[in-house]
Amino acid sequence: MKPYAQKFYKSKAWKDCRASYFTHRHGLCERCDNPGKIVHHKKYITPDNINDPDITLNFNNLELLCQDCHNREHHAMTSVTVEGVKFDSNGDLVQA
């Protein structure tokens, strides 16, 4: 959790909204139908919008995700090289 968001995520307003949304979605991940765990903000919370309830507490900006789907959303593996090159066994970039 980012430092600027700690107060928000500990607030009664968020806890109530999260519980209500979880029930609304029947506890199932909206992407894979496995048991949900994390109420995710589709439009990410930033220091500029953390006090905007249309972003933070609006069901239209929420999505119930399981841990795996949430990890894919935030930690998807992206290529660290450009097309046509790769790392060899020594860790050097070489033509693919």
Rank of each mutant, 00 (worst) to 15 (best):
F87P: 00
N90P: 04
A5D: 00
F87E: 04
E73W: 04
E30Y: 05
I55D: 02
D92G: 10
E83V: 14
D68R: 10
I45N: 04
L28D: 00
H41F: 06
A76N: 15
N90A: 08
N51D: 09
N51I: 14
L65C: 03
Q67D: 10
Y4Q: 01
A5G: 06
L64F: 02
M77W: 06
T78I: 05
Q6W: 10
K2S: 06
T78A: 10
V82D: 15
S11K: 05
R18M: 02
G27H: 15
K12R: 11
S79K: 07
N71V: 14
N49T: 10
D88Y: 08
Y21G: 01
H40G: 05
T46Y: 03
T23P: 00
Y44F: 09
H70N: 04
N49Y: 02
L64D: 00
H74C: 01
E63K: 04
I55A: 05
F87C: 06
C66F: 00
K10A: 13
G36Q: 02
D88V: 07
G27L: 11
T46P: 07
D92S: 10
I55M: 04
R31N: 07
A5L: 10
I50H: 02
T56V: 10
S20W: 03
S20T: 11
A96I: 12
H24R: 11
C17E: 01
Q95C: 13
L62M: 04
I45D: 08
S89H: 08
H26N: 09
Q67S: 12
P3E: 10
E83W: 11
N58L: 03
S20D: 06
I50R: 04
C69E: 03
C17T: 13
C32M: 07
A5M: 15
I38F: 04
H70Y: 00
E30T: 07
K15W: 07
C17I: 00
P3C: 05
A19W: 06
G91A: 11
N71M: 08
S20F: 02
S89I: 07
A96L: 09
E30C: 08
D54P: 01
F22V: 01
K10D: 13
F22G: 00
D33K: 15
T78D: 05
Q95M: 15
N90K: 13
H74R: 03
N49L: 13
N58G: 02
D54E: 15
A13Q: 15
K43W: 02
P53D: 05
N34Q: 12
Q67I: 08
H40K: 13
